[in-house]
Amino acid sequence: MHIRVESLTHIYARGTPAERVALRGVDLEIEPGERVGISGPTGSGKSTLVQHIAGLLTPAAGRVLLDGVPAHARTPEARARRRQVGLAFQFPEAQMFEVTVFREVAFGPRHLGLNADEIAARVRWALEMVGLDPDAFADRVPFALSGGEMRRVALAGILALKPQVLILDEPTAGLDPRGRADILARLRAWQEQTGATFILVSHHLDEMAGLVDRVVLLADGQVVADGPTRHILGDGDRLRSVGLSPPPGVVLLEALRAAGWPVRTDALVIEEIISEIVRCIER
C-alpha cells in the first residue's frame, strides 16, 4: 500500500490550557514494501504520526492518503484501507482482555469476518511467528504469562491481521536484552516472508540499525531528516542536536576518530564496527 502524508498537523486538547501541537505540517511518502524507521525524542510526534497513518486520528490540517484514500474517512473504501494497516501500540499487552491466548490473538481476525478455520490457522501462524508454541500457549490465560510472553501474544494479535503495512511503536520497550534481540529478529523474518511495508517507531537507534533501510527523524512535530539508515544514524551530531543518543557504535567510532584514528563513523552493526577498527589497525 502506498502511504502519503500531506502537510499533516495535529493538535491535542485544542482550545484548552493544555493545548499542544503534536505535528506541524508533516510531509512523507512511503512506498509499498519499504522498511522505515521513525525516531525522535519524547514528544516529537512520532506516535501521533503513526496513529494518523492507521487512520485513528482526525487531522487538524492536511491528510494521510492510503492508496489515494484519506485514512480517517468514514467511507467503506477508507475502512478497507485501514484494515490493511496493523499498528501495535507501545506496551500492547496493556490492551489484552480475553481469557485465553487463542481468543486474544483471534480478536482481530474475528473482526475481519473470517471463518473459524481461517481464524485458527492465522492464530497458529501468528503465534509461531512470534516464537510461541501454539499447542503450549493457545489455552493459557494471557495475564498469567511473563512480561516477554505477553508482549509476544500482543504482537501476534497484530500479525494475525496479516496487514500490508505493519507499524510497531517501541515493540521492545521494557524487555530484557535477550528478549529484545529475539523479537526483533522474528519481526524481521516476518517482514522478509511477507514483503509488507514495515514501520518501526523507536528511540533505540542501535536496534533500528539492522532492521530498516530508511530513517525519518522527527523533532517538535516536524521532519528534520529523512534518508538512508546509514546516512541518518551515522550522523551523531545531528542525532544529539534533536535530543537522541546515537547508536553506541557511532559513539565509539567518533571517539576513535577524535583520538586520531582514520575510521569511518557510520558503521552501525557490530561486525561492521569490528571490521572497521581491524582495518585501521592492519593498515
Binding site: R79, R83, G108, I158
Partner: peptide, 24 residues
C-alpha cells in the same frame, strides 16, 4: 484507539453490538 487498530469499530453497529464493543 488501540482496539480500533485491531479492527473494532466502537462507534457503529446496533446498540447491543456497541455495548459489547466496550468490553475490549
Amino acid at each position: 484507539r488501540a482496539q480500533r487498530a485491531r479492527g473494532v469499530d466502537l462507534s457503529s453497529g446496533p446498540p447491543w453490538q456497541r455495548i459489547r464493543n466496550t468490553v475490549p
